[in-house]
Nucleic acid binder design. Structure first.
Lengths: 198, 198
DNA sequence: CGGATTATCGACCGAATGGTCGGTCAGGTG
DNA sequence: CACCTGACCGACCATTCGGTCGATAATCCG
């Protein structure tokens, strides 16, 4: 997928990308605000000042991370399966693809979903998230109108609950132990659309 | 509900309780780590040192807050409706009551669900949360065994998804605008147990 | 080899952090 | 009235914060 180690010149060490991956991991462990550049440097095995060779600020690390997550989500929403056909099928497809993106970019999405909106970067991220939520809500509304899903629950609330389920993955899904992506996506769709009751 | 202003002696001002409520609000706004005692003091309209008259440390504020949330949740799980009768009904009751607790103690639960586990206090909170999750998972397992809910999704995953939905409330439910508790609880139960599909 | 490229180090800075301390101020009580 | 209680203030402290700067180290290319 995102391979391409690519032969680089100059002194070996971290580059922007490899540094970012570690940084996001640490941010998720200790929280963005709870992570000092010293913490980061320790985990990276380099000094604090070396980090600033790759990235101009702590904030920039956050921006790179959350944008990667958002790009993945919006790319999924733009796929044909999410833009053509009956709204109900589109909604189901978006849920499934969202689960896949969420798992594929787990650390980035995790960071994104914890952003609170203090700084400009965070507010921008929240704005894009709201944009995404709007897509889901519109899809839910259309699905209700075409008679594909239950009309007794408000479309906006339906969308929130649906992605509440999806997004909860970041709290408990761990790629190493058991369960692969397809299995999880099936479970989400089954529970969300079919319901728990027999 | 939690009234009892109670006549106090000495110079009027904040007491531990009223200070805590404001503190939790600020923590939720800016994040616990992102909130300095100065921030807190500004919002309270008193000085930083005044805060330390009411509480020994910033950490203690966090402990008080998350324990209040956890106590509410465990109290709900201990109610007769959650401990007697068919497992499926108990599970449904726990979901409904959890929504109610979550709404009643929204700021406290919000803070709880954002704890990451850096400090001892946070780790203790996470431990209690896991304990609660175990109760839910056991209930789900029993409900599957008695044939009340779908057996094709693992009980642990069912529990996670279920409370993923419930817990998502902290992200979007706002008591002021529209929707009352019962309405939301009904929606959650309807979607979770009945499913979206018609 | 020499030079270009890239990553790293260590010393440093100003500001902000959580927390302490001695003293003050306002209301209730006898 | 005098006294006690509980809330509050302002100055201060050691540490940590995000970030800067000039020098150095390791690799590739010709």
């Amino acid at each position: 997928m995102t391979a391409e180690p690519s032969i680089r010149r100059g002194r070996p060490g971290y580059d922007r990308e490899s540094l970012l991956r570690v940084a996001v991991e640490v941010f998720n462990d200790r929280g963005y605000d709870g992570t000092s550049m010293e913490d980061l440097a320790n985990r990276l095995g380099i000094t604090k000042s070396a980090i600033y060779h790759h990235v101009p600020s702590k904030t920039e690390l956050l921006r790179l991370a959350v944008n990667r997550a958002l790009d993945g989500l919006f790319a999924a929403a733009a796929e044909p399966g999410c833009t053509t056909g009956p709204a109900t099928a589109r909604l189901e497809h978006l849920v499934r693809r969202s689960v896949e993106v969420l798992v594929a970019e787990l650390p980035f999405v995790t960071l994104l979903l914890r952003v609170r909106g203090n700084t400009d970067v965070e507010r921008a991220a929240l704005a894009r998230r709201r944009e995404f939520d709007l897509i889901v809500a519109d899809l839910a509304r259309a699905a209700i109108t075409e008679g594909g899903i239950r009309p007794d629950v408000d479309a906006a609330i339906t969308a929130r609950l649906l992605f509440g389920m999806v997004n909860s993955l970041i709290e408990w899904y761990r790629p190493d132990r058991g369960h692969d992506v397809g299995e999880i996506a099936d479970a989400v769709v089954a529970v969300a659309f079919g319901g728990l009751r027999l």
